[in-house]
């Protein structure tokens, strides 16, 4: 299908359907009519209501998926590999280290910033480190950065494991740490949720400026260079924005694998490979998908919550394998 107003309308409808599904599912099933009623009630006579909590959580999940969709497109474009994912440059390892410190090291300083900020700083800091080292080493291609990313991620992963081991005894909950790593929606509410939403849309707007450059990178780095692109600088800017988007998703959603890989890939089949439409549609579809899956995570074995990252992995990994098989057969 050619991207255009029509396809965007469909994507918006799918996103809304995803949010409604996510909000309907849970410990108790709620019909969309009840949802709407609760929404009206919460505006006319505000009172504590689990449906409004659920709605805000699902909208939070939507923005996590939204950011992962954007980040996936940016990373796949910048690394010129449609099987790349947003955690390539150490975001997952860095975010996990930040979260580990927040959960396992309850000092006043760490408590005051809170887990999302720590996770964000970890994820964002890791990628900045990778880009900084790449710059220092005058690495100007994506493959070199990827190697730096692997090394930095290994280092951060080891640091996290060490931290976890050193701090592990009866006084701290390793289960909480594990739970975070497997994906956890931090449930931003009210003003925080609004801020998250504004930031997500702002990042989409900013990433649209990368679209043409990502298209041009498809001709190969030498051709892109002669078409007027400072490839090394563009990669730096694109990956910084990509990492910022990933960091935002990690801060509020933990490490959720495969969403940023699979969603842009499916959207490619649908609207083609131009990065402008790809960004917009991947953001909307990623958001809708994650919102719906959050509902599933709460509804499958109530009242237990299945870690969202397990669900995305159970669904995403077979899909990823399918892609690889298709690609190489």
């Amino acid at each position: 299908m050619k991207p255009g107003v029509g396809s965007i309308v469909i994507a918006v409808c799918l996103a809304i359907a995803g949010v409604l599904t996510g909000a309907s599912l849970g410990v108790d099933f709620v019909t969309p009519a009840q949802l709407f009623g609760a929404l009206v009630d919460s505006i006319t006579q505000p009172q504590p209501d689990i449906i409004s909590w659920r709605l805000q959580r699902v909208v939070g999940a939507f923005f996590v998926g939204f950011c992962l969709g954007i980040a996936g497109v940016i990373f796949q474009g910048a690394f010129r590999n449609p099987l790349a994912e947003p955690f390539l440059l150490g975001s997952a390892a860095g975010g996990s280290l930040g979260a580990a410190l927040a959960i396992l090291l309850p000092t006043a300083a760490v408590s005051s910033v809170g887990l999302p900020v720590m996770a964000f700083l970890g994820a964002w800091g890791a990628t900045l480190t990778v880009l900084g080292i790449s710059r220092f080493a005058k690495i100007d291609d994506a493959a070199g950065m990827l190697l730096v990313g692997i090394a930095v991620a290994a280092l951060l992963g080891a640091t996290r494991s060490m931290t976890t081991l050193v701090l592990s005894d009866e006084t701290v909950s390793l289960q909480a740490m594990l739970s975070w790593t497997l994906g956890s929606l931090q449930t931003p509410m009210g003003a925080t949720l609004a801020l998250f939403g504004v930031l997500s849309f702002a990042l989409l707007a900013v990433s649209m400026f990368l679209a043409k450059g990502l298209d041009i990178l498809g001709f190969g780095e030498p051709t892109a260079q002669t078409m007027g692109m400072d490839v090394a600088r563009f990669l730096g800017v694109a990956l910084t924005i990509g990492a910022l988007t990933t960091g935002l998703a990690v801060a509020w959603g933990g490490v959720l694998g495969f969403v940023g890989l699979v969603v842009p890939h499916m959207v490619r089949w649908w609207v083609g490979e131009r990065h402008g439409p790809l960004l917009v549609h991947s953001a909307l579809i990623g958001g809708g998908l994650l919102a719906a899956l959050d509902g599933v995570s709460r509804a499958l074995i109530p009242p237990s919550e299945i870690p969202l990252g397990l669900i995305t992995a159970f669904m995403g990994a077979p899909f990823f394998l399918l892609l690889i098989v298709r690609r190489y057969r």
Binding site: G218, T226, G228
Partner: peptide, 19 residues
């Protein structure tokens, strides 16, 4: 690179079409 591209366009020997 941008200034140079305004004056010179280039066709490489190996063409690549990733997208």
């Amino acid at each position: 690179p941008r200034e140079r591209a305004r004056h010179v366009s280039y066709i490489a020997q190996q063409q690549e079409f990733l997208w």
